[in-house]
Structure formats: structure tokens, C-alpha cells
Design a protein around this nucleic acid. Structure first.
Lengths: 228, 228
DNA sequence: GATATATTACTGACCGGTCAGTTAGTAAAT
DNA sequence: ATTTACTAACTGACCGGTCAGTAATATATC
């Protein structure tokens, strides 16, 4: 996880200082620990003492860098999730090939992010806990959900304009694609061990792409695409 | 919500009894209140005192009928969610028309259940809290998730056997269909007021059906079906 | 039908544990 | 010597669960 982190507590040299002052690196270490603990136990289930323990500091230190549990949670979301949305938008801007290729690319990229257990936990956490935090809910919805959806929408519109995609209720489809990915990743993660016949990551992503392309491509184009 | 519930506290007649003994109806009233409160605040956010208040009893009474908070939660899930799965299975058994019709019927039925705010809350609650309750998680996964999926799987297999549906990774599609419905209902409910351009219930269900039929029907059959 | 007795549904004050947040004080750095 | 990063002990609110007691009803007795 975090190999190059020099432990504060060096091997038992009684003269060595028991801790170091590292105000530069503390915030990130705390966010790291917060991500793990919130992801594992949910917002309410998380004890700040546990976050502190994993970050290698005391509970009081958390309050030097974050003003409350909620603020810590919010900053953690901000730091860990937004970069992924940035990436999707960048891909959209830079791609100049066929819309179908772009769609596959974006879907694969999102899936790659979501199959990372950390992100899967985060997205579960969001649907789970956001109802209790209106302000964070608004932030997450606008900065993550809406921006992701707009990327998909733009791809679909390009495809329709290019005559590659059929006329479709693309406002709905733009919601359906992230929904599929998010829900699958949540399910995969949560139901490990419960499903008697689980799908592999490859089966999921292949399934999503198969389903989406069949739903989106003009029938005449479907055959050569979906087996590519 | 519950119109025919004679209030325990009759209008201020000082001689009227302050409460009545109604051991038959208490459990259901408590489950009713529990559904509302758990749905609103989540498992950890729920105070049993609030459940008691809404059920019109004292907190101690809860423990006459349910042995703990967790038991109350479990019984509530059992009582409120299972009937819906029963219905889907029954529809599958009784239908004898075309597989495409059956698929549409089942999807509409599930959506009708999920657009009920209670159920939407329940499904959100499940993804939110289940990680913390392994036993309840197993129960829910087996009795709700797997059974629902099997219904869809059976429909798809019928359609393939009848030559109406294309060859497809139906194990994946059987997961995708409930995923779409569940995720949409959760989003609709949660994001009320956040989405600048929300979809109506009809747009969602029409979108799901459009998407699913396009993904599932053999191309030759698609045209006459999806506009029906 | 009135009164006494037994039963059980229900109440609400209370307890013990938990945990977010505070603060007094200590160790490191300059 | 002073400033600052950090610790650890502490507080107070909160809440799940308990239980001694009370109010409503059922039954028995006259």
C-alpha cells in the first residue's frame, strides 16, 4: 500500500525521538488512512481513533489538520475521486477516432478505476452515506456524477452526429452506462463469497461493452464491432 | 400511510385510558415505523426511541417484540422486501406469451416496486449497511438478489430458446437489468433537487425497456418491438 | 354486578459503554 | 528561549439495552 513511509517509531533505540514533526506529509497520510477506514466501516462506523492509529498519529493530531470528522470525510472524497473524473474528461477531449472506439475506451477507463477496490468502496460509501450530508451530497453529485454523465453524453452525441449510433434516448443511456459500471463494481466487491457463480472482471467489462454497443450502434454496424 | 389506525391517545378525555393493550397489532406497527425510520436515517443513524415514538409505544415495548435493534432490522427487511420477489417469480410461472412481452412485464413490475419510495430507500439501505451485518447480508443476497436475478435469467433463456433473443452473455445481462433498475431508483430518490434536468419515471422505464430490448432482441425483430 | 385477585402489556427512568471533540502539557525544532 | 507539532488524558453527549413498577384487562368469588 504505502511502502516508502519511514515509520515514526524506529526500532527500539531508547534515545531516538519517539516521533517526528512532519507537518508536510501528515495531511496526506491522514487522508490515506481515512480512505481505508471510511471505506471499510462507513461513515458512522468509523472511529477517528482508528484513523489516527493507521495514520501513525494520535487522535488530537487529526484536529490540527481537519476541523471535524465531516470535513475529513469531505476532503478525502475530494482528493481521491476527482482525479478520475478529470481523466475521463481529458480522454474525451483528446480522442479523435471513431465514437464507438471512444465509448469503449471511456467505459474501460471507468471500469479500471472502479475495479480498484478503493474506488469501489468509495462509490458504495457515497450511495450509502450521502443522504445524511446534504452539502457533501451536492458536491459529489455535481463534481462526480454529473461530470461523468456529461462525458458519456458527449460521446453518445458525437456518435449520433457521425451516424454511427442509432437515434436513442441518449439522456437515459448516459445515466445507464455509469449505473452499470458502478453497480457492478459495488456488487462484485460486496458479494465476494456470497455469489455461487461470480463473474470475473473480464466477463463484466466484456458484458458491459457487448450490451452497450448492441444498444447503441446502428444495427447494420453491430456485427463487425461487437466481436472486435 | 396508515389511515385506519385508531390513535392510542384519544382526544383529551382525562378519564380515557392513556393506552390500550393491542398485542396483535403492535409488531406490525413497529415494523412500519422501523421501515420509515431506518429508511430515513440508515441503521446506525436510527434511534430506537424515534421508532418507538412513531409506533406510538415506549422504547421498552420494542424489546417485548424484538430482541435487539439488529433483529428488528432483519425482521423488517424480511417482511417488506420478500413479497416483491415472490410476485416476480409468480409472474414468471404464470406467463405463457412471448418472452419479450414477459421481459417487459417483469421489468415494469420491478420498476413499479422500486419507484415506491419505501422500496427505493430499502435498497439503498441494503447497499449502505449490509457490509456491517454478514448474516443479514447473506440472507438478503440469497433471498432477494439471487432470486431476482434467476427470474431474469429464466426469461432470457426462454427468449433465446424461442429464437426471439440473440445469443448473448445472458449471465451478465441478468445482472445488468436489476442493476439498472435499482441504481436508477436509488439515484432518482437520492438526487431529487440536485439534478438540473431530471428524468421522469416514465422516461426511466421507457429508457430501460428501449435499452434492454435493443440489447437483447435479434436485430431483425428490433424494429417492430421497441416502438410498441 | 360489585369486589378482589391474577395476569400481562406497557412505561420511562436509568445504566454502562462509546466516541467526537477538547485541552493541558510535552517533545522536537530553530 | 521560543515556537510549534504532537500526545494523551479528559469531557460530555448520546444511545442501546434493562428493569422495577404501573396501568389495563381477564378471571374468580361472592
Amino acid at each position: 500500500m504505502t511502502p516508502p513511509k519511514p515509520p515514526d517509531s524506529s526500532p527500539d533505540d531508547p534515545c531516538a525521538p519517539r516521533w517526528h514533526r512532519r507537518p508536510e506529509s501528515r495531511p496526506d497520510e491522514i487522508l490515506e488512512a481515512a480512505e481505508a477506514v471510511f471505506g471499510e466501516f462507513g461513515y458512522n462506523g468509523t472511529r477517528l481513533e482508528e484513523v489516527a492509529r493507521r495514520a501513525g498519529v494520535s487522535k488530537g493530531t487529526l484536529y490540527l489538520y481537519f476541523e471535524s470528522k465531516e470535513a475529513l470525510f469531505r476532503e478525502m472524497v475530494r482528493a481521491r475521486v476527482l482525479p478520475i473524473v478529470d481523466l475521463a474528461e481529458q480522454t474525451l477531449q483528446e480522442h479523435h477516432g471513431s465514437p464507438a472506439d471512444l465509448l469503449v475506451k471511456v467505459v474501460r477507463q471507468m471500469w479500471a478505476a472502479l475495479r480498484n477496490a478503493r474506488l469501489a468502496r468509495m462509490s458504495r460509501l457515497m450511495t450509502a452515506e450521502l443522504a445524511g450530508f446534504p452539502e457533501l451530497g451536492r458536491f459529489y453529485y455535481e463534481e462526480v456524477v454529473l461530470r461523468s454523465r456529461r462525458v458519456i453524453e458527449a460521446v453518445l452525441e458525437r456518435g449520433i452526429a457521425a451516424g454511427e449510433f442509432r437515434a436513442m434516448p441518449h439522456r437515459f443511456v448516459a445515466r445507464a452506462v455509469p449505473a452499470l459500471l458502478v453497480h457492478q463494481s459495488q456488487t462484485q466487491y460486496f458479494s465476494a463469497g456470497l455469489d455461487p457463480n461470480p463473474l470475473s472482471d473480464e466477463q463484466v467489462i466484456d458484458g458491459v461493452i457487448d450490451l452497450v454497443l448492441h444498444a447503441v450502434l446502428k444495427p447494420s454496424r453491430a456485427k463487425d464491432r461487437t466481436n472486435a
